[in-house]
Design a protein around this nucleic acid. Structure first.
Lengths: 336, 336
DNA sequence: CTGAAAGCGCTTACAG
DNA sequence: CTGAAAGCGCTTACAG
């Protein structure tokens, strides 16, 4: 491991017989430079294999070319897709994303935000999390902010999300159209807005179909597989029979499916199951899972474009993302 | 969005009635400072809510406090766990990871490496990929490098990986012990070393049990679910019957499981199935998947520690990671 | 078109 | 213990 003296703009200047200012000018072509000097400079650059120091540029220009991304869990299958979209959307720009995880714990989220800000990002993209709305709006006073997967009142134009209410409504209505009337719902974490919205969509579909709400059939989950299993166990112990389950996300649907399997209850013959998210794995479960798709990658690229717009002084200009019901094989006609 | 003049070390100095040098000294406590001045400085810092500029510090110190992580796909379930480990292992240090994706395409990997290097990282962690060994060794001449999930000859002490041969051997031997003799194998991408090692482990187990190798039962896959489905279709069309399948990773096992399901072939009653990786979802497939665990998070944290060691001038000091067979329910006794 | 100079926000010998 | 000065590697008015 050899350190090797870093080669600087001065070295290039010397080799090309010009001043550092001129080197800088050809680098950024910010001002016309005589053709022969330009050539000499570019030649020196490639001969010495010179790469400008991004950090020095950052200091001098007062810009960092980094976009902070506060994610909750880098390994989450759902957010992973969004991160991929963000990364993709930033390609080709001078900006590079840096990530920090909040793990859905307020303290860690604050730490992560602090770490991100200490790197002086040009903008911040927030994925979910528990940081209070007011605080997010305050950060947005100071630099461009876009938030994904969360609704911040008074900040809607900077929020990228799918209509959770509508998605849940579509899922539930699908079950109703298949003849189900005893539809259980496994919710997400109650403190998350999407949990509330999805439950509201579920209830709205029932209401619309004149199906009385049975709170016995609503079980609180955690968005994790394990909670889906538990929810089914609980459901089975209660008196209220059910013929279908709408889980607030795919991961809980996987857990529910396993619990059903353990009890010898077939999907979809005995009970129909629908999830939410359309994780990459959901096309390969047995049976493949009927679920609600969120256009995650597109949402990520849209978040990236929006942050770039904001940086350039333009409005975020976010498109509307509609949820889409993906009908596969885990939900079928109710014959009872 | 208000820019707001950045507050600097000079502002603190002025407010505290000391020189900028002294402020710097209490910031880094690199030299004793009189107690009263220290107090004045810390008071000014918290009153003005001062945060040092990491980029200015970087320039002045000649260090960046960033670790470049060249990953292939940020949303990959397998690498995601490793990234989480890296992130976790870097916590508390002054270093922060920055990621760039290579997408397993040489050109993109080179671009990503270039982007990473332009940020002047103190060290680089490489996850998989196709960049030639020699090139990686060359980069390692210049700065600390650790590679995960890949074997680089002559660079073993910097490589974090599990023994693929051994893992595949364990998986195959498990099937053999259950009485299986017609064991199919779905391989990964042939250009990846782990694919070769896993296949060798499979063959070794067969050989050890005096089971002749039947190349009809070896199908090439791509590590994706879809290829697992295709592999089963191919297997079914061939003349050679089989009672078990060892897939080179869990994702292909998922695909295989679905193809079997489609044909009405039960797992494990009709055919046993074992995977490799132990993805988070594998505990929740139906039936839960017997597979080979790689301690991904630990591998990630070990990679982080190793890079920190290297930066401090110490040897990487990587522990040995043994694969572990996780026996769940997708493989059972062969009765034929 | 082009160079010298000042500045970005810190750190760190160098003197005292 | 502490300040003035130089320097990190660039950019960008300012003059010409």
């Amino acid at each position: 491991m050899t350190a090797g003296k870093r080669i600087t703009i001065h070295d290039i200047a010397r080799h090309a017989g010009v001043s550092p200012s001129t080197v800088s000018r050809v680098l950024n072509n910010t001002t016309p430079v005589a053709e022969d000097k330009r050539l000499a400079v570019t030649a020196a650059i490639r001969r010495l294999n010179y790469r400008p120091s991004i950090v020095a540029q950052g200091l001098a220009r007062g810009t960092s070319t980094v976009i902070g991304v506060l994610t909750q869990d880098i390994a989450s299958p759902f957010y992973g897709e969004i991160l991929r979209g963000i990364e993709y959307g930033l390609r080709g720009s001078v900006y590079h994303p840096i990530f920090a995880n909040g793990n859905w714990r307020l303290q860690e989220e604050h730490d992560a935000l602090q770490i991100l800000r200490s790197r002086q990002p040009e903008g911040i993209i927030l994925l979910g999390g528990n940081i209070p709305d007011a605080e997010i709006r305050a950060v947005a006073e100071q630099l461009p902010v876009v938030v994904v997967g969360r609704h911040i009142t008074g900040f809607e134009r900077h929020c990228v999300r799918v209509d959770d209410f509508q998605g849940a409504y579509l899922a539930t209505r699908h079950l109703i159209e298949l003849g189900h009337r005893r539809i259980a719902h496994i919710t997400g974490i109650p403190s998350h807005q999407d949990t509330l919205d999805r439950q509201a969509g579920y209830e709205h579909a029932l209401h619309e179909a004149n199906i009385p709400l049975n709170t016995e059939l609503i079980i609180e989950g955690t968005f994790q597989e394990q909670s889906g299993m538990l929810a089914v166990e609980t459901l089975l112990m209660r008196a209220s029979p059910f013929t279908a389950i709408f889980a607030a996300n795919d991961q809980m649907a996987y857990g529910a499916r396993l619990a059903l399997y353990r009890r010898g209850i077939r999907v979809p013959e005995d009970v129909s199951l629908v999830g939410f998210d359309n994780l990459p794995g959901s096309a390969f479960t047995t049976p493949p899972l009927t679920t609600v798709r969120q256009p995650t990658v597109e949402m990520g690229t849209a978040a990236a474009s929006a942050i770039l717009s904001l940086i350039s002084g333009a409005p975020p200009d976010l498109p509307h993302f509609a949820p889409e019901l993906i009908i596969r094989e885990s939900a079928s006609l109710c014959w009872r």
